[in-house]
Design a binder for these strands. Structure first.
Lengths: 145, 145
DNA sequence: GCTATTTCAATCGCGCACGATTGATTTCGA
DNA sequence: TCGAAATCAATCGTGCGCGATTGAAATAGC
């Protein structure tokens, strides 16, 4: 079982969750909420649909998550006037201003992991390759219903 | 954000979940349930506590999961007579007999991914190294409270 | 022997993920 | 133009993960 790639990835994901849980505790953010903020720091004012495309998430996950972030003051949800089906997601001043502090805190926690830059890149590349292979495999499986 | 290792791992985990969801659909098993069965196929009659140590899970997750597996006929939960706090988990005949069929089905789905054996091993090693680094990092973070 | 501590599974509450459905709004097609 | 189809966010239900607590049972310490 410890030779199963899926199990290693499953554990890696849970370890990352724990890592970010500790690192983000001062900000009362979960890992999923942090990822949403990362996306909005890259490009603010995304529509829920566009945000979901980047994170591979849909409204069933994002709607309650965004509502919690809105309640906590990180962002504002606003319906588009042109198309009343769509929802714009805008960072608040607070949400924008906290970016550097949060990234700093995460980096500070990560320093101990002392993954060398090139090693980090290698890991990243390997897992992205794996993801591509998995996406292909899943597409094939769905094709042959 | 796509350069974040955590995000790549997060996506890999969700892709594996989807992969196994499709592969295990004929057996009405979730990925987590499949992992529990994997552990029991390796060693049957484990106590809940021991099972949890292998999977890095505790009773708050395992208790309801095992109850569902018991209801579906895969295993039996039985209290230890010597120590009535503890719970033995035994596969049923059904649970044992299905092993080869399930492993076959999973392997059959995985054939399309055509990850070469040595490449699979490399991925596995890399992620296990990453996990070790994360565990160390988390331990350090918890130490400095 | 009797209490305090430890060790268990079980329970509770919350936040994801996600399949499925709903209902509002927009676009398409005849 | 008008009804059908498509496209949205929202909602619902289920199954994890997991921090925290509970209560039963066993062990340790006096």
């Amino acid at each position: 079982m410890d030779n199963q790639l899926c199990f290693a990835v499953y554990n890696a994901n849970r370890l990352f969750n724990k890592f970010y849980q500790i690192a983000l505790a001062p900000f009362h953010l979960t890992y999923a909420q942090y990822v949403v903020l990362l996306a909005l720091w890259e490009e603010d004012g995304l529509m829920l649909h566009a945000l979901g495309r980047r994170l591979h998430l849909e409204s069933n996950t994002l709607t309650p998550l965004l509502k919690r972030l809105e309640t906590a003051g990180w962002l504002i949800r606003r319906r588009s006037p042109e198309d009343k089906r769509q929802l714009f997601v805008h960072l608040t001043d607070f949400g924008r201003r906290k970016q550097s502090e949060i990234l700093q805190a995460v980096q500070n926690c990560g320093r101990q992991t002392d993954l060398a830059e090139d090693q980090y890149r290698l890991y990243l590349k390997k897992i992205q390759d794996l993801n591509a292979a998995l996406r292909k495999s899943i597409a094939d499986m769905e094709a042959e219903h």
